[in-house]
Simulated assay, not measured.
Amino acid sequence: MNPQDKNGKLDYIEFNVSDIARTCKFYASAFGWSFKDYGPSYCEFTDGRFTGGFSVGGAVTPGGPLVVLYADNLAQAQERVEKAGGRIVRPVFDFPGGRRFHFADPDGYELAVWSDQ
C-alpha cells in the first residue's frame, strides 16, 4: 500500500496479554499466524494480511484491544484529535518502528495513532 493510502486508516491492533509465549502458541496453532519478537514484553503478529501486536505492558481487558491508526504527520494528527474533542491519554513516545500517541474519543474508547516519520 502506498504510504499516502494509509493516512487515517486502521493500520494495526494490539492486545494486552498475560503470557506472550502462550498467546503466540495459541494463535499459531489455531490460525497459522506468524510472529516477530521484540523482546520479553512485545511480539508482533501477522495473519498474512493484517499486522498487530501482543504486549504484556498493560492490563488484560478482554474485548478491549488497542486499535491503531496510521498518520503521515503525527503532530497534525494529534492536533486534529484534540480539536475534534479527543483527549490525549498517553503523549507521543518512541517504540520499535516509529512514534505514537494514545487518545480517548468522546465516549472514552482508547485508540492510538502512529507514524514511522
Rank of each mutant, 00 (worst) to 15 (best):
G85M: 04
V17C: 08
T61R: 08
F54T: 09
D11F: 14
Y38T: 00
I20T: 10
Q76I: 03
I20D: 12
L69P: 14
G63L: 10
F45Y: 12
K25F: 05
R22P: 15
G58C: 05
V56I: 15
P40E: 09
T46R: 00
P40K: 01
F35N: 00
V60T: 08
C43N: 06
F35L: 06
G48L: 04
D47H: 04
G32Q: 03
Y42Q: 01
P40A: 05
G85A: 01
T23Q: 13
S55P: 02
T51P: 00
F15S: 01
T46C: 08
L74A: 11
A59Y: 10
E79F: 07
F45E: 00
Y38L: 07
Q76N: 10
P62V: 08
L69Q: 15
F26D: 11
E79H: 13
V60N: 00
K36I: 08
V81I: 11
G63V: 04
I13V: 15
S18P: 06
Y27V: 05
T51M: 02
E82L: 05
T61S: 13
T51Y: 02
A21L: 09
A84L: 00
P65N: 03
G52D: 01
V56R: 15
G32E: 03
N73K: 14
E44H: 05
E14D: 15
L69T: 15
F15V: 11
V17A: 09
L10N: 15
F15C: 02
Y38C: 09
A71M: 14
G85T: 08
P40Y: 00
K83T: 07
N73R: 15
D47Y: 02
V56Q: 11
F35D: 01
K83E: 09
G32K: 03
A84D: 01
C43S: 13
F26A: 05
I20W: 07
G58K: 00
L66C: 07
S29L: 10
E82G: 03
Y38W: 10
I20H: 10
A75E: 15
A59W: 03
T46D: 13
T23F: 04
G57E: 11
V17P: 09
V67L: 13
T61Q: 14
T61Y: 12
A71Q: 09
E14T: 14
G52C: 01
Y27I: 00
I13G: 03
V67N: 09
P40Q: 03
C24T: 12
W33Q: 10
V17S: 10
T23Y: 06
T51G: 09
G52N: 06
I13L: 15
V67C: 06
Q78F: 08
N16E: 14
G63H: 10
S29F: 09
E44A: 11
A75D: 15
L10K: 14
Q78D: 02
R80M: 02
N73A: 07
S29A: 10
A21P: 05
G58R: 02
T46Q: 04
A71E: 09
F54K: 13
K83H: 04
A71L: 12
S18Q: 15
D19V: 03
